[in-house]
Design a protein around this nucleic acid. Structure first.
Length: 487
DNA sequence: TTTTGAGTTGTTCGA
DNA sequence: GTCGAACAACTCAAA
């Protein structure tokens, strides 16, 4: 008797899963396995919110496999040792997996592939996570891209991605049961349960991912161009965590968007459908670009891509006082606090607000972008090394295609433009909900009687602003002037 | 090799 | 209220 191993990692789905399809195509009994090995992520072991998602996604995958007669084998410990043991026990002759792109994982997987092949095992890796893998997109001179627009143009010049693969029609199970840990045994859930807010907001798993994709393309893609900017509305796809864990893949997203465009684009507001679809797919493009940049610059999560920023004069912050105030959503700037509280409560933050809180941390507080990156890493359910690094280096101005130094978001102005009714602030900062909308973004400017009518006492019921926005903006511009190249 | 146009998401100030 | 300019200079990618 022999078998084939399908090693699941961050491809927790049955549809459009090339490794699973390849395993099925061998005709051999399949051993689906998940190995929990957080140590192998190097310095970037997944954070708490991410682990919560993983726990539930594994339960979903286990259930979906069971419906097709397969038992997901769950193990902990060294990946190579675990695979080797399974290969011996089940007399497996082949291993299939879908590729990861973070530096620590590519190094590990390369080593595992070489070792197992030396032992005569047929090892094949596949692409489930990207439209175009990082090394396949090259500039005219063979280099890697450092600006998004030419990168995405180069991608779009290529032929459209292949249509998604169906779930394999036939999946053979092994006859002899193999030992498996329970999902619970992985210890992914926190000891003190703070996850109600996550559970109220998210349903991990492939079925939910597909439902969300359909819902988004039908209900929101036609007005995505504007709708994506309003944090109080469900105008974004909310697919980030599903994509990170591979519960759905970009080929499926691409196909769903194109099919919906063919239908929706024929309706009255055709231009909105075209621009909405285009813009949405370019966000998928940013995800691709982030992987491209990380692959070619393994230091990207830790070091500024622009070396000039190594000398940036960050603010001293004894005992992390400033950082903690930001983390807890107690800065006294309503839009910033709303975003930080949404993050902590739900494991997610609207993208517009991510830019605002990021700009506030890096420019108004002048704290290093790596501190914000680390907090997001621990608290986001969609925490992804490529996208997270790209976002933070973008807002800091040190990264690929980054914001110019003088682009300092004014969180009051942003609130007035993108949360004009103050709904988002009222929801996440309820102590300000009694204020009229026009005062919710800058309560320190509201007349005293309006504050008291609303039950707001600054410094008591809600903090005074922790910095003066105008002055700290000036300080940031001055700090950036220091690292300008002397002319 | 040199040149050229472009580059996610902003704010402020003054006319 | 609206509009254009200034906020710098640099780097990238392709012609």
């Amino acid at each position: 008797m022999s078998a084939v191993i399908c090693w699941f990692r961050r491809d927790l789905r049955l549809t459009d899963n090339p490794a699973l399809t390849a395993a099925a195509d061998t005709g051999l009994p399949i051993i689906p396995v998940y190995i929990h090995a957080p140590d192998e992520a190097g310095a970037w072991a997944p954070g708490a919110a991410s682990n919560w998602w993983l726990h539930h996604s594994l339960e979903q995958l286990k259930g979906a496999l069971a419906e097709r007669g397969l038992t997901l084998v769950i193990r902990q410990g060294d990946s190579l040792a675990t695979l080797t043991e399974l290969i011996t026990t089940a007399n497996a002759q082949a291993v299939h997996w879908n590729r990861l792109y973070e530096p620590a994982y590519t190094a590990r997987d390369t080593h595992i592939k070489q070792t197992l092949r030396t032992q005569g095992v047929d090892v094949q890796s596949h692409n489930a996570a990207l439209l175009h893998e990082p090394w396949t997109i090259k500039t005219g001179t063979g280099g890697d891209y450092k600006a998004f627009t030419p990168f995405w143009r180069a991608c779009r010049r290529l032929s459209d991605p292949a249509p998604p693969l169906p779930v394999p029609a036939s999946l053979n199970a092994v006859k002899t049961p193999l030992h498996s840990d329970s999902v619970n045994a992985l210890g992914l859930l926190p000891g003190r349960d703070w996850t109600d807010g996550l559970a109220a907001q998210w349903q991990p798993g492939e079925a939910s991912a597909q439902a969300q994709l359909q819902h988004f393309v039908q209900a929101a893609m036609g007005h995505y161009e504007q709708g994506r900017d309003w944090p109080s509305q469900a105008g974004t796809s909310r697919l980030s965590a599903h994509l990170h864990f591979g519960e759905i893949g970009p080929r499926q997203v691409w196909q769903a968007a194109q099919q919906q465009l063919a239908q929706g684009g024929a309706q009255d507001s055709q231009a909105d459908w075209v621009t909405g679809t285009d813009r949405f797919l370019s966000e998928i493009g940013w995800r691709e670009f982030a992987h491209h940049v990380l692959f070619h610059h393994p230091d990207f999560p830790d070091q500024p891509l622009n070396p000039r920023f190594a000398d940036f004069p960050w603010q001293a912050d004894p005992n992390d006082q400033l950082l903690r105030t930001w983390q807890q959503g107690q800065t006294g700037i309503p839009l910033v606090d709303a975003g930080m509280r949404e993050l902590y409560a739900t494991g997610w933050m609207h993208n517009r607000v991510r830019m605002v809180v990021g700009s506030f941390l890096v420019k108004n507080l002048r704290l290093p972008w790596q501190a914000g990156e680390a907090w997001f890493w621990d608290t986001l359910v969609d925490a992804d090394m490529a996208s997270n690094s790209l976002g933070w280096q973008w807002v800091a101005g040190s990264g690929a295609d980054a914001a110019p130094y003088f682009r300092v978001f004014n969180p009051v102005r942003q609130g007035e433009r993108f949360d004009a009714n103050g709904d988002y602030v009222a929801h996440w900062v309820p102590e300000l909900a009694g204020l009229p909308a026009k005062h919710r973004h800058a309560p320190w400017e509201a007349p005293t009687n309006i504050l008291s009518d609303a039950g707001v006492t600054l410094g008591v019921t809600y903090p005074q602003p922790m910095v003066d926005l105008k002055q700290s903006r000036q300080d940031a511009l001055a700090a950036f002037a220091q690292i300008k190249k002397p002319s």
